[in-house]
Nucleic acid binder design. Structure first.
Length: 150
DNA sequence: GCCAACGTTGGC
DNA sequence: GCCAACGTTGGC
């Protein structure tokens, strides 16, 4: 059982969209590190924070579970898709996605600014300089601590 | 809108 | 394999 944090821009897809959809495939990840984690490490039943980036209130907004383990991201083959990748070969697909299931919204947004203030979280990847990964692991200690802030 | 950080591409 | 140029992310 592992813990994760997954970023999304709420203008593209938000916690409320996931609440409505209940289960959604997490397509469009075009970063090898993130892909490798989805392919090898994310297991059904793992818990994840949903994080809103690039918006007015940046931070962790909800919880979800991994509903389906890594499988081919078909949007890479769709010329009309925003995340179309001409280099991904159908016989040897380059990109992977998982399905996530809505669990609940947090009572409030735990903002990035707030997370940065806690000494306990100095090793949390999210608050480290230059971090750009859209999917990252969260240690159990950090996970538990962050939930006490809610 | 700016820009630092970082990933990817492609010439050599 | 190196590295400069370029593109993207994402906070501010």
């Amino acid at each position: 059982m592992q813990y994760w944090l997954m970023k999304t821009e709420p203008s593209e897809y938000s916690i409320d969209d996931l609440k409505r959809d209940k289960v959604e495939h997490w397509d469009g990840v075009r970063n090898y590190q993130a892909r490798n984690m989805m392919r090898a490490d994310m297991k059904k039943g793992d818990l994840a924070f949903l994080y809103h980036s690039n918006c007015d209130e940046i931070g962790i907004v909800g919880l979800m579970t991994v509903a389906r383990e890594g499988y081919v991201d078909h949007t890479a083959f769709d010329k009309k898709d925003k995340h179309y990748d001409p280099k991904s070969d159908k016989d040897n697909p380059r990109w992977i996605m998982v399905d996530v299931r809505y669990k609940r919204k947090l009572k409030r947004t735990i903002t990035l600014a707030e997370l940065k203030q806690h000494k306990k979280l100095v090793d949390f990847q999210l608050v480290q300089r230059g971090n750009r990964l859209s999917i990252m692991p969260v240690s159990k200690n950090d996970w538990d601590f962050i939930l006490t802030l809610e």
